[in-house]
Design a protein around this nucleic acid. Structure first.
Lengths: 239, 239
DNA sequence: GCAAAAGTGTTTTGATTACACCCATGG
DNA sequence: CCATGGGTGTAATCAAAACACTTTTGC
C-alpha cells in the first residue's frame, strides 16, 4: 500500500510504501490549569469523517513502530522532546468496520507550553479535551484511551514521568496537583513535600513565583541525571 | 495469505486466510523444582530451520489477537486453562530478515503438571529450558523473552498471578520459592508466611505433605473468589 | 490585618526487617 | 538423636498519615 507523506527535510510530498492492515494510534496527554487533557483529532477523510478520534497513521515499511509513532507526533505537534511509550496492540476483528486492521496504541506526555498544533493533511482539526468531556470516539478509541489512563496511573507511581507534563520550572504545589489529577486522589501537602524532596530528584532554583497574592513558592526543576543514577541502582519511585 | 490449520472440532485440515506481515510469539513460563523455565520450539520450516525460538504463528482474519494467542497455545500444549497476557508489539524493521513482519508478544503461565506437548506442524520439537540455559534464539526472540521477564517480575508484585505456575495444592515454601525465583531475591520465611497469610488469598486444606523427612507442611489453595472481591475494592498485592 | 498558599514540626500508627527459637518427622 | 524444613514470637527500625502551627506575600 502506498501513501503520501511530507518529507521532513525537503518539505515535498513523497510517496512511501506502508504496512498493510496495521496502524498506530496515539493518546497525547497534556496538563493545564490542574487538569489532565487529551488531544483529539476531527477526522477529515474516509468513513469516519466529522467524528473525533485519537491521532494516528500508517507505518512506513522502513521505519520501526516506535519511530512511526514519533514521526506522527512530530507531524502533528512539531514537538521533538516528549515522553512516548507503547501501550499494546489492539486487535478485535470488529474494531475497524471496513477491513481487518490491527492498531498499536501509544501514549505520549507533552509539555503544553512547548506546543502548537500543526494540523496535518489527515486531520482537519485538533482540540484538547478534558478527560470527562470526551464522548464517543471512532472505532475502539475510547477503549485505547481508557487503557492509556490505567497505564499512566500505574506508571506514574513507579517512575517520575509526570515531569514531562509540566513546564521546565514548576512549584511543588503544581507537581502535587498533577499527581492528584492523574491518580484521582487527595494528597497531604506537608507529607507530599517531604516525600518528593527526600527522593532527591528535584533541584531548587533561585527563582520564585512572581505576581501571586500569597507567599511566593520556590521553583524546582527535575534532575534527570540524578534520576538515571538512581534508576540504575534499582531505585523505586512511589508517591 | 492462506495457511493450513487443523480444525479443532473435526480434526480436518482446513485452509484459512491470515493477516499479512503480523505474527504472534509467545513466551510460555513453567515452574519445576524451584526453577522458572520457558518452553522453546525447534523450528522445522523456512529459513530458521533447526534453530530454537518462541512458539508463534499467524492470526486468522476472523479471530482477535488474544484468541489467536490462545489458539496457538492450545495447539501446542492442549491446555485450556492458563494465564495469558499481551506484552506489546515488536516492530523493528530488521527483526525478521526476509520481510517486514511485526509480531505481537504474549506471555503465558501454565501449571506444568497439567501439561504435555503436542508438537504442531510448524514445530518439530519443543523443550523446556531453564532461564540461564537459553542461548541465541531466532529473530528478536531473546528480546521478547527478556521483556517478558521484566513484565512477569513487575506483574507478580501487583497481582497473584504466580499461582498459575503452581499445582492446585501447594505449600507455603513452594510459593515462597516461586517468588524468590521470579524476583531473584532471598525472602525471610517467617515474614513471607505472615505477609501472604494476612492477604487472605489462601485457603488452608486439611491435607498435608506426605513422605517428607521433616515435619509435613500444610497444603494451601489459592482462593480466586476472595481475590476477585479484593481486587474490585482496589486491593494491592505486594510481596 | 486578612486571605491564601508556602513551608515546618510532631505524634501516632502500622508495616518491614531481622533473628531467636520451638515443633514434627524420617532416617 | 540429628538433619531438615515447618511454624511462632518479638524487638527494633522505618515509612506513612494526620494535623497543628508558623511564614510570607498582595490587596
Amino acid at each position: 500500500m502506498i501513501k503520501k507523506f511530507i518529507d521532513e527535510e525537503s518539505g515535498k510530498i513523497v510517496e512511501k510504501s506502508v504496512m498493510n492492515a496495521i496502524t498506530i494510534d496515539c493518546v497525547i496527554f497534556g496538563f493545564d490549569n490542574g487538569s489532565l487533557e487529551v488531544l483529539l483529532i476531527e477526522h477529515a477523510e474516509g468513513i469516519s469523517k466529522g467524528k473525533w478520534g485519537l491521532p494516528g497513521g500508517w507505518i512506513k515499511k522502513e521505519e520501526s513502530i516506535d519511530n512511526a509513532a514519533y514521526r506522527l507526533l512530530r507531524e502533528l505537534t512539531g514537538i521533538k522532546d516528549l515522553y512516548l511509550e507503547q501501550l499494546r496492540a489492539f486487535g478485535e476483528p470488529s474494531r475497524f468496520p471496513l477491513d481487518r486492521v490491527i492498531t498499536i496504541g501509544y501514549y505520549a506526555l507533552i509539555k503544553k507550553d512547548m506546543f502548537n498544533i500543526k494540523a496535518g493533511f489527515t486531520a482537519s482539526d485538533a482540540k484538547w479535551y478534558g478527560l470527562n468531556e470526551v464522548e464517543n470516539l471512532i472505532y475502539d478509541h475510547n477503549k485505547i484511551l481508557e487503557y492509556s489512563l490505567i497505564r499512566l496511573r500505574s506508571k506514574v507511581k513507579r517512575a517520575p514521568i509526570g515531569f514531562n507534563l509540566l513546564p521546565e520550572k514548576f512549584t511543588l504545589l503544581q507537581l502535587m496537583q498533577l499527581y492528584e489529577e492523574i491518580l484521582g486522589v487527595q494528597l497531604d501537602k506537608p507529607n507530599f513535600r517531604r516525600k518528593i524532596l527526600k527522593m532527591k530528584l528535584l533541584v531548587v532554583l533561585e527563582e520564585k513565583q512572581t505576581n501571586v497574592s500569597h507567599r511566593a513558592a520556590k521553583l524546582y526543576m527535575f534532575d534527570k541525571e540524578r534520576y538515571e543514577m538512581l534508576t540504575n541502582k534499582g531505585f523505586i519511585f512511589e508517591v
